[in-house]
Simulated assay, not measured.
Amino acid sequence: MARAKKAAGVRTNSGKKLNEQWHIGAAHALYHRDGTWFNVLDKFPGALCDPNGYVLFSSKSEYENAPDVNVAQQTNVPGGIHRLSSYVRMAE
């Protein structure tokens, strides 16, 4: 019997887990290992997380109008969230 293949996108972390671990206080938190591509936040305050930290948006307006954050069908942050001025570093 053949073994089942592992999913290509093995989850190493999650926004929900980091929201709890780092006490971010977000109603919705998303994670991406490179901090560049996310689904769209739909509850606020909302956080975008990478392995070393996060950016917290207090409102939908703040999120959609943030410089260097492109919100469409997905959220793109060219260069990663660690380049944003509001980035909070939690780990190395």
Rank of each mutant, 00 (worst) to 15 (best):
A7K: 15
E62C: 05
C49S: 02
A66Q: 10
S86Y: 00
R83E: 05
S85T: 13
R3K: 15
G46C: 04
A7W: 07
N70G: 00
Y87I: 05
M1G: 14
N65F: 09
G15Q: 01
A26Y: 03
A4K: 15
R89W: 01
H28L: 14
S61H: 12
W22N: 06
V69Y: 02
W37Q: 09
T12F: 07
K43W: 00
E64F: 08
K5F: 07
F38I: 03
G80Q: 02
S86W: 00
V71Y: 02
S85G: 08
A91P: 00
G15R: 02
L41S: 02
I81R: 10
A27S: 12
W22I: 06
K16Y: 11
T12N: 11
K16A: 13
L48P: 00
I24V: 09
K6G: 13
A8H: 11
F38W: 01
N13D: 10
R83P: 00
L84Y: 04
G9Q: 13
S59L: 05
A66G: 01
G79T: 05
V71D: 03
E92G: 09
K60F: 06
D42R: 15
N13S: 14
K5D: 10
Y63S: 08
R11Y: 07
N52W: 10
Q21F: 07
L56D: 03
A91Y: 07
A2T: 15
E92S: 14
S61N: 12
A4L: 15
A27I: 14
F57W: 02
K6Y: 07
M1C: 09
E64P: 00
M1I: 12
G46N: 00
I81Q: 08
F57T: 06
A66D: 02
V40R: 11
I81F: 09
N13G: 11
C49R: 08
H28T: 15
H82W: 11
P51L: 04
L84W: 08
Q73K: 10
N52P: 08
A8N: 11
K16H: 12
F44H: 01
D68Q: 13
D50G: 03
D42A: 09
E62T: 09
S58I: 09
R33L: 07
A72C: 02
P51Y: 03
S61L: 10
M90E: 08
A4S: 14
Y63P: 02
P45C: 06
H28Y: 12
E64V: 08
W37R: 12
A2I: 15
N39R: 13
T75F: 04
K5L: 12
L48H: 01
L18Q: 09
Q74I: 08
L48T: 01
F44S: 01
V55A: 09
L84S: 01
Y63N: 08
V55K: 11
N65C: 10
R89T: 06
G15E: 03
V71G: 00
E92Q: 14
F57Q: 03
L41K: 06
R3F: 13
A66Y: 06
L18V: 06
A27E: 13
K5R: 12
V40W: 05
A8Q: 10
F57C: 04
N76H: 14
R3S: 14
G53P: 04
S59C: 02
T75S: 06
Y54V: 01
A47V: 01
G25Q: 07
N52A: 05
Q21M: 12
K17E: 11
G35C: 05
F38E: 00
N39G: 11
V10W: 00
